[in-house]
Design a protein around this nucleic acid. Structure first.
Lengths: 90, 90
DNA sequence: TCGTTATTTAGGCAATTACCGAAATATTGT
DNA sequence: ACAATATTTCGGTAATTGCCTAAATAACGA
């Protein structure tokens, strides 16, 4: 769970997750939304992957990034344990 | 909101918040729960204060730390916007 | 096989973070 | 005013982070 919170600590990574919430996207399409170099973004992807917040799936020459909803919800639960509002109220 | 997520990225700081959830505590009492030097802990307090996650109140020679529930709930809302489960369902 | 496109890895640098011990500051009681 | 206690600030160091450009890897189509 620590890796998840560390991953969430950078605004670019949170924005990536927000994008992936709408739909899965490949690295290049994600990159178009940010004014930073692709290798830098690739590093952010690695952080998100190591935190299990996203999964990847190669499709030919591109790599699709998917949001891992179950881990997101786990993290939400951990956060609720901190932020009040006991219970998960699904 | 960025500072809040950054503050949450360190396990010691999350544990401090967890302690303060039960009751307000002074710096020294908090320090007894951690195997790290007091100046280090004081740095963590500063991070939490700058994120507005805690407030302080001097009581004589000690300084009481209080959890700032409203900011915690704001952060929870921001997280829910990421982690699915639209709406705040208070 | 060669060239093209998509993405990652490598190498390097500046800034930040986390930690510590020592010293400074603030408050109280004697 | 002084000593004792609580906490922070200072100064320093090692590790990590975030960013970049250049080079490497992977998959495809001609």
């Amino acid at each position: 769970m620590n890796k998840v919170f560390e991953a969430l600590a950078h605004p670019v990574r949170r924005d990536i997750l927000k994008l992936l919430r709408k739909r899965a996207m490949c690295a290049g399409d994600i990159a178009e939304h940010f004014p930073i170099a692709k290798p830098t973004l690739s590093g952010h992807f690695t952080v998100l992957k190591n935190a299990d917040l996203v999964t990847t799936q190669r499709q030919g020459t591109t790599i699709m990034y998917h949001l891992n909803m179950s881990v997101m919800e786990e993290a939400l639960g951990a956060f609720m344990a901190l932020a009040g509002n006991k219970g998960k109220e699904r």
